[in-house]
Amino acid sequence: MNSYAIHAGSMFDGFSLSGPATVYVSGDRIVRVDRTGALPSDGSEVIDLGPSACLLPGLIDTHVHLAFDAGPDPVTSLGSTSDSELLAQMRAAARSALLAGVTTVRDLGDRRYLSLTLVEEMAGRPELGPEILAAGPPLTTPGGHCHFFGGEVEGAEALRGTVREHHARGCSVIKIMASGGHMTPDSVAPHASQYGLDDLRVVVDEAHRLGLPVAAHAHGVQAIRDAVEAGVDSLEHVSFLSADGIAPDLDLIDTIVRKGTFVSLTLGQDPGAVQQMPEAVAAFVNALLDVYSSLHKHGANVVIGSDAGIGPMKPHNVLPHGVADLAALGVAPLDALISMTSSAARLCRVEGRKGRITPGADADILVVTGNPADDPAAILDVQAVFRAGVRVR
């Protein structure tokens, strides 16, 4: 069994930043954390990364699409790609995320459950990619948003049956398209609801009965309202979009905060691609950022779901840029780090095993140069990545 100690000048454990630390790893788990800064005296192998290094839990991206290629037209690309080619693409996407320090991803939409094929391939081979918490094909109405993934379903009994099938196949989360979206031609408008409150309740009740959380894609105000009332675990995008544009509904935000519903904010953008955004897209993004600022200021449970894969701004290694995005909204970098580690682990129901550095947790560890609690850019200066105890970078 592989055993060693990692020593660095500081450590963020998923909740707070402290000084020099030594983390002891045995196999795929953390077995001891020494915060005195002392090096082991028992002859253990030591990976000393120096006084400027900071240890962090591996990052958790709560919303990715490994099946999208982050190109200019990922939907057309998906449609022209065979399953074998798509799996190869998804393997590369997963590896790209891992090398950036993202050691867990929640894949919220694939074709024919291909993400579960990756889960099987990567079992016992942590060097291949992050742990994948797969949703399989997202539930959507006939011809609805992302229908090309194959998850079209309507009617209470069919919805229950689809949730049961996802559970039986081994999915970790149920994804439902409560509203329309921007990537599906000839479907309903992004602000329009696809499922009503009764259907959402059917899905939530069945998923929770089976022990699965529910993630609701929700741009429109009514879709957000219904998803919260139905008891979903996370709201994806949360754009507060109407036919007139984007504007936060403060009463609805208060309801989200009161009910403790997680909001998975679509943050993290490649800076180079952002500079080439069309003016209309930039205006939409800026309005969305104002909504996200309101959610944070009102105390919502914020996590970051990058939506990696949906376009050139969203390569699969983009999540770390979300720290700077949140900081630009006035969020302290330390709170941003919490949102993509311990808080994300709580949403994904892997709390204690992921998102923190503590005895018994998975040895998923990111090492960067500098102090990411002071400087958001430090999260991009990766020295090392460990996945389930295996050093992959």
Rank of each mutant, 00 (worst) to 15 (best):
I6C: 07
G9A: 15
M11D: 03
F12R: 14
F12C: 12
F12L: 12
F15A: 08
F15I: 09
F15K: 09
S16C: 13
V25Q: 15
V25W: 04
S26K: 13
I30G: 12
V31P: 11
S41C: 06
D42T: 11
G43I: 08
E45C: 04
E45Y: 03
D48Q: 06
L49K: 08
L59T: 02
V64G: 13
A67K: 02
F68D: 09
P72V: 06
D73P: 02
S77E: 12
S77M: 08
R95L: 08
A97F: 01
L98H: 07
L99V: 09
G101F: 02
R106W: 01
D110L: 05
L114S: 13
L114G: 10
L116P: 06
V119Q: 14
E120T: 10
I132K: 11
L133A: 06
A135H: 01
G144V: 01
G150R: 01
E152R: 04
E157F: 00
V163R: 08
V163K: 10
E165S: 09
H166I: 03
G170V: 04
I176E: 12
A192P: 00
L197S: 12
D198F: 00
V202W: 00
V202T: 14
V203N: 10
V203W: 01
D205F: 01
D205S: 15
G211R: 05
P213E: 12
A216N: 07
A218W: 01
V221R: 11
I224Y: 04
A227F: 01
V228C: 12
V228I: 09
A230I: 02
G231T: 05
G231L: 03
V232P: 06
E236S: 08
S239H: 02
L250H: 14
I256V: 15
F262S: 11
S264P: 06
S264D: 09
P271K: 04
P271F: 02
A273D: 07
Q275P: 00
A280W: 00
V281H: 00
F284H: 09
F284L: 05
L288S: 15
L289F: 12
L289S: 10
L289K: 12
S293A: 12
H298K: 15
N301M: 14
N301D: 11
A308P: 03
G309K: 14
G311Y: 02
P312Q: 14
H316G: 09
H321I: 05
V323F: 04
L326C: 13
L326W: 01
A327D: 10
A328P: 03
A328Q: 13
G330H: 06
G330C: 07
A332P: 14
L334M: 10
S339E: 11
V350F: 06
V350P: 05
D362R: 15
A363W: 00
V368P: 07
D375Q: 10
L380V: 06
V385R: 08
F386I: 10
A388I: 02
A388L: 09
V390N: 07
